[in-house]
Amino acid sequence: MSEKGHAQSNIRLGMVIDLDKCTGCGACSTACQAENNISYRPDESQKLRSITWMNIYQLDNKKAYPDFKIAFLPRPCMHCDADHHSPCTFVCPVNATTRDENNGLVTHIYPRCIGCRYCMVACPYHARSFNWWDPTWPKQMESMLSPEVSPRMRGVVEKCTFCHHRYNKARAKASVDGTDPNKAIYTPACADACPTKAITFGNLLDEKSEVAKLSKDPRAFRILEKLKTKPKVYYLSKQDWIRNLADNSLT
């Protein structure tokens, strides 16, 4: 145990998203939906009840025409690396959501979740969605459900897993191939899809990885750093107005 309250490992999976390249096209989000069997309903306009793991926020600079500018901020789960606990794992009464200290992934076990939604209340990023309905698919569309991710049931919370199942597969493959599973790399569905390649994924503790380099870029920032949640998702932008929206400030 370290002073941070958890066993140190040399893997911390994280993500860097270049907001200057993000065009808000939504490919990351749809790829995520397809990969992770996210359910949908005929009306998805009630955004507060719409299940999205990769939610794309539209930011604007609050100026008048024609100086008005928009930008997009894709928000996966931040997989907070806060000391001791992530905000959500700290509060779950049944240990349904925990942080895997081997790699920093915040996981969520659907069959154990009792649906108290305390984790949703604790998360300032609104990265978690609740199954307000029984997830159902039109009969034909059940054919496109992936066997690698279990569909959820009503009454449980779900969120981005950084495509944890892909990581397991990559590790399993490394074991079979006789290479070090701890060096196994993979990319989540969102990073794979991104048409402008704005999403970079990898081990933040591996100095040589692209993601580690980018996370130390002068353009890099995280959202709500003042809350000490220590997100493992970094954003890049050169534009001050976007950077200023990353955290609350008194000015």
Partner: peptide, 29 residues
């Protein structure tokens, strides 16, 4: 179950757009 980009294709270089990732929803519509 999933449509991904083909990294060997020079047009999209492995990426894929929102419509193509949803392509199976037309197949199974």
């Amino acid at each position: 179950i999933l449509i991904e980009g083909n990294p060997a294709n020079p047009v999209n270089e492995g990426s894929v757009c929102a419509l193509a990732t949803s392509a199976l929803q037309f197949l199974y519509a």
